[in-house]
Design a protein around this nucleic acid. Structure first.
Lengths: 177, 177
DNA sequence: ATTACTATAATTAGTTC
DNA sequence: CGAACTAATTATAGTAA
């Protein structure tokens, strides 16, 4: 294809750039919607721009998409036992940071509520303000670093649980659904 | 506007539908890429179709997008104290579901690792298989229901912490950064 | 700043090879 | 199958109101 007719960034003043962006974005949404109807698929488009645009035209259908995928439980037990053992063998004292964790948890809860609104109540992304968008992005990004702390937290509790029932290793229970 | 020339689902056999989808999707990606260069923005496109396509052409730049937003720490403390108090006043016994929580946590950890790869190592979404895509979608969706449980979990620990220092309510410490 | 128009350019469904 | 072609449709930058 080789992008023959692409008009790269020229002498675009912000006003003209904004005009072009609006017109082309409208066309892009139109094409996406058209294609989603024609081929019976779901298409979402996200735009991060100078004005913090964040658009997902087909979001109202996102709930159904996600829930549809949730009906397929396959392929989620790859490294379960391995990680399980790693978890149980950790021995790090994290008691002194409980309060700090709660502070962060509460922050996260705000974004969780927002995400919940988006999924459950079909709130439009277009209705979100810049602050909410930033928070939501962080909500997703911060997941990368939070789980390790939480596993340390849970680990200590499990060790207590195990020590009070030390004839039970607590690993091969059938409680997994 | 009114979608004048839209070609809605006609007598499309799956083969033709697939052909049309490929051609149009290629055009859609091309337009999105062109526009992202022209207007200096980031555009992501997600397609959920019969073959579980999941494409985000501009993902390699997603890392920079997310991190850029993370430099703006404003507007994340809206309901903090309110939720904090709610948290501290919960009194639910969740000791008996620790092991079950760990099972779920480990599952989540797999998706966390995958998400980590995507963000940190710029793994292409195009390289993901269907199983990984499903898992990743669940990873996002499942956040809606997991935090409540975790807060109960943490709450109990905090209560222990507070009861050992009952002249300190543990709420207005300055440990928040 | 938006709207309408338009000449030019790009997309695309159908078709052929 | 896929790849090249093409007539008809659609997108779009510029322009003007």
């Amino acid at each position: 294809m080789a992008m023959k007719g692409i008009r790269t960034t020229r002498n675009l003043d912000p006003s003209l750039r904004r005009t072009i962006l609006d017109k082309r974005l409208e066309s892009l949404y139109k094409k996406a919607k058209e294609l989603s109807i024609l081929c019976d698929i779901q298409i979402g488009i996200i735009v991060f721009g100078e004005n913090n645009v964040f658009t997902w035209p087909s979001l109202p259908k996102a709930r159904n998409i996600v829930r549809g995928y949730l009906t397929y439980p396959e392929g989620r037990r790859l490294k379960k036992l391995e990680l399980h053992e790693t978890y149980l063998h950790l021995a790090v004292n994290v008691r002194e940071v409980y309060i700090n964790k709660i502070e962060k948890m509460v922050e996260e809860m705000e974004m969780e509520n927002l995400f919940n609104q988006l999924i459950e109540q079909e709130k439009k992304f277009d209705e979100l303000g810049v602050t909410e968008i930033k928070g939501l992005l962080e909500f997703f990004a911060v997941k990368r670093t939070k789980l390790a702390e939480r596993m340390k937290q849970l680990k200590k509790n499990v060790e207590n649980e195990v020590s009070s029932n030390d004839n039970n290793d607590g690993q091969d229970n059938g409680g997994y659904h």
